[in-house]
């Protein structure tokens, strides 16, 4: 087969420019990532979302949509098959080759970075709005979210306790990591009026019994599915070393909804309040 490469590159360029110039509101959107899905939906684009990834669980109707990404395994054709005009994904979650193919096919791809703070959440909302071409709507949503978050923070301030919380990310006893400084969970724990039990390292590191005892948290925090994977509250209490901690002695083992905690978007106020209630 003879391949006329020049004409191909020409077509490639044309498509690219066409895509870049298009500012019209998207009609078919693929959102990869729970926070993005939630935010896009909150901006009134729920009906336009045609496919999501496995972490998108809110709003509830979204879960019926096809899932095109699992553990960051995503293919260009898998995305294209839904004929999207916009794909939004967290930065670094889509391989370079796939992004190239999408752009080549004239599909707009936006990568968003998320900072785990109140300010970061507001910036994120505005960025999603920009990607969708609805800046004004985004601004309103951001201000609204800010108000709700501030209200939630006041409730938090009312309580004087500052319990030391250790978050354990678990998928069975085999895979357990704990949240260090600068992680999304540390951020939400601080916002909810707790202190992250681990200050020695950044991000998530492998769980060890010794580190648990040394950190001596007042409360152990897990996601719902994490708690389940370890055999419920009793399962966690039975783990080596837990009995030596304040949390273990007081049986202060709590679980929260995972996606809600780490989304850091329009439902940040709910996350703060839920966690605050859980740890106090």
């Amino acid at each position: 087969m003879e391949i006329r490469s020049w004409s191909w590159i020409y077509a490639f360029c044309l498509l690219f420019f066409y895509a870049a110039a298009g500012t019209a509101q998207p009609k078919r959107i693929i959102t990869l990532g729970g926070a993005i899905t939630e935010t896009v939906a909150a901006m009134g684009f729920e009906k336009q979302i045609v496919a999501v990834d496995v972490t998108s669980e809110f709003p509830a109707n979204i879960t019926k949509l096809p899932k095109v990404s699992k553990n960051r395994s995503v293919s260009a054709e898998g995305l294209m098959a839904y004929r999207p005009d916009l794909v939004i994904a967290p930065e670094g979650d889509v391989p370079y080759g796939v992004i190239e193919s999408l752009k080549g096919a004239g599909i707009r791809f936006v990568a968003l970075k998320q900072e785990y703070s109140v300010k970061g959440a507001l910036t994120f909302i505005r960025a999603v709005g920009a990607a969708l071409g609805v800046k004004a709507r985004a601004e309103r949503l951001a201000l609204d979210t800010e108000q709700r978050v501030n209200k939630a923070l006041q409730t938090v301030k009312a309580s004087t306790q500052k319990p030391k919380v250790l978050f354990i990310y678990a998928r069975g006893t085999g895979t357990m990591t704990v949240a260090g400084k600068g992680s999304s969970m540390a951020a939400i724990i601080e916002l909810a009026g707790g202190r992250n039990a681990i200050q020695e390292f950044n991000q998530y590191k492998t769980y060890s019994t010794e580190a648990l005892v040394y950190a001596n948290p007042d409360a152990l925090l897990l996601f719902d599915f994490g708690m389940e994977s370890l055999g419920g509250k009793n399962g966690v209490l039975g783990m080596p070393g837990v009995a030596f901690t304040t949390a273990g002695k007081n049986k202060n083992i709590v679980s929260v909804n995972g996606p809600l905690m780490i989304n850091f978007s329009t439902r940040l106020d709910q996350a703060i309040l839920a966690l605050h209630r859980a740890i106090n």
């Binding site: 191909w8 490639f12 498509l15 260009a76 054709e77 294209m80 098959a81 004929r83 193919s101 080549g104 096919a105 004239g106």
Partner: peptide
């Protein structure tokens, strides 16, 4: 179909 062409020639 433009998209089909794209998928076929540039992806598959």
């Amino acid at each position: 179909d433009n998209l089909a062409e794209n998928v076929l020639l540039y992806v598959r």
